[in-house]
């Protein structure tokens, strides 16, 4: 099974970190993994995206052009990448900032008001953790225990941060579970 994931948003929304944590979890789970940012001239507030691959086979090209899962944190990213998602793939949309709906009917789309949830968690910077939790739950690429290791690895040095970020991710995951229950998928 190969998960080819694209995280996209504005610079500063933390898409690169979210991708890296997922990759770390994948590595700890014994999967073949790769992570690569789309890099360009430095611009504050410009677009940021990263490709993440979690696979049972060695990774070929690390750059994801036809994602099996797409996470978009802003509307330009949805406009740009929506068409590329593989049929049957997963599309997670930050509905706090993305005002329109997904046009595709052959993908499983989720709407998570990430900014609003982050604000409720006390800091808009939890946005990417909510995205990460949503994605991890939607695609189940990595067993949860390894994702937990990623939180410890990333935030272990700062007291309270592991729990706070883990909490944000759990809320993201819960949104996916709720949506699927509502849709009668599971």
């Amino acid at each position: 099974m190969e998960h080819e994931i694209l995280f996209a948003g504005f610079g500063g929304q933390g898409v690169l970190l979210a991708g890296r944590m997922l990759v770390y979890a994948g590595m700890m789970a014994g999967k073949e993994v790769s992570w690569i940012p789309a890099y360009g001239p430095e611009q504050r507030g410009g677009t940021a995206s990263c490709s993440v691959i979690i696979s049972d086979e060695p990774v070929g090209c690390p750059i994801v052009t036809k994602p099996s899962a797409l996470v978009v944190l802003n509307e330009p990213s949805l406009d740009r990448f929506e068409a590329a998602v593989r049929p049957g793939g997963v599309l997670i949309i930050n509905s706090s900032l993305v005002r329109r709906k997904c046009m595709r009917t052959d993908v499983e789309a989720f709407y998570v008001p990430m900014n609003d949830i982050a604000a409720e968690c006390g800091n808009v910077r939890y946005l990417n953790m909510i995205a990460l939790g949503s994605l991890a739950c939607a695609i189940a690429a990595v067993p949860d225990e390894f994702l937990q290791k990623a939180f410890v690895k990333q935030f272990g040095g700062k007291p309270g941060m592991v729990e706070a970020n883990r909490q944000a991710a759990m809320i993201g995951a819960q949104c996916i579970k709720n949506a699927r229950r509502m849709a009668g998928v599971r």
């Binding site: 890296r20 993994v33 690569i36 890099y39 990774v59 690390p62």
Partner: peptide
């Protein structure tokens, strides 16, 4: 190359 330089792997 730029891809190998920028990418992360184990």
């Amino acid at each position: 190359d730029g891809a190998l330089g920028q990418m992360m792997e184990a």
